[in-house]
């Protein structure tokens, strides 16, 4: 049975309704302090771009599909390798050697067939990132290198879409919740491209923790509930059992969101 609305007038404010089985599916997340029916409808109308959908982006996508986000566009190139399986939980042993994006999408559809899942089998370049960002309501950046992160950040800045940037190393992770033009952007934090290594140590448990936190922030933003952590970075030091929340400061000289907009695309030298 469809739960009674927690918010009088919900039905009147949105002519688009969800089928009865949807209300049954989401019954445990509709209630005080969680989602209203209107919030659930907002989720069902939302599009989220996730790149990539590996250690962190995969659990994010899983949580968003379970929660009933309308459309998930996931971009992830390459073939699934055995060392991926310590954290890339959308994959499986049966999918080893197969393209990641298609099997990750199939896993999401098997969890919730009501979600429209779009698989992109490569990492978007600048033009495609911009186009995908335009079509999305929110962007999750969970890429292994800064060139890709800066590209997504720039797409978020130029389209004005919220960006959640998730990062990890070892047993630690960080999460930034950014509103371009209002809060700091990723380039405000890192004016110079940091060093990174393509193959780094990481435990799947931290990937999943950060990915789940990214999904929570996305749900709050898209459903318009709770208090999103706008302009903040969470640092989760699970190695030592310590967390910090940092108020990020916007840089007026930022090459992506600073005064001299329109900013230039990430130069090749930053990659």
């Amino acid at each position: 049975m469809e739960p009674r609305s927690q918010h009088p007038g919900d039905e009147l404010s949105d002519p688009v309704s969800l089928p009865p089985e949807a209300w049954q599916r989401y019954a445990r997340q509709i209630g005080p302090g969680v989602l209203s029916r209107e919030a659930q409808r907002r989720l069902s109308r939302a599009t989220v771009l996730i790149t990539r959908a590996g250690g962190m982006g995969g659990p994010t996508a899983l949580a968003l599909a379970a929660a009933g986000v309308g459309r998930i566009v996931l971009a992830h190139g390459g073939l699934l390798q055995l060392p991926d399986l310590n954290r890339q939980i959308l994959g499986s042993e049966a999918g080893l050697g197969q393209p990641r994006a298609a099997q990750f999408a199939a896993r999401l559809r098997s969890l919730n067939s009501a979600v429209d899942v779009v698989a992109i089998d490569h990492e978007p370049d600048e033009a495609e990132a911009h186009r995908l960002a335009q079509q999305a309501d929110l962007i999750i950046s969970a890429a292994p290198n800064f060139a890709e992160r800066f590209r997504l950040n720039f797409a978020a800045v130029t389209t004005g879409k919220p960006l959640i940037d998730a990062a990890q190393w070892g047993m630690q992770g960080s999460l930034c919740v950014l509103a371009p033009g209002k809060t700091a952007c990723l380039r405000c934090l890192y004016p110079e491209p940091p060093e990174f290594e393509e193959h780094f140590p990481v435990l799947g448990a931290i990937s999943m923790a950060i990915g789940a936190l990214a999904a929570l922030e996305a749900i709050k933003i898209l459903a318009q509930v709770g208090e999103p952590s706008w302009g903040k970075m969470w640092i989760v030091d699970a190695y030592r059992g310590h967390t910090s929340i940092v108020e990020l400061v916007r840089s007026p000289d930022c090459r992506a969101c600073g005064k001299s907009l329109p900013a230039e695309p990430t130069p090749e030298s930053d990659r």
Binding site: M56, P144, F146, A166, Q168, S174, F200, M233
Partner: peptide
């Protein structure tokens, strides 16, 4: 005061 130094991480 508490000082935190965050060496940038990426992900994947």
């Amino acid at each position: 005061d508490e000082l935190t130094i965050l060496i940038p991480m990426a992900g994947g």
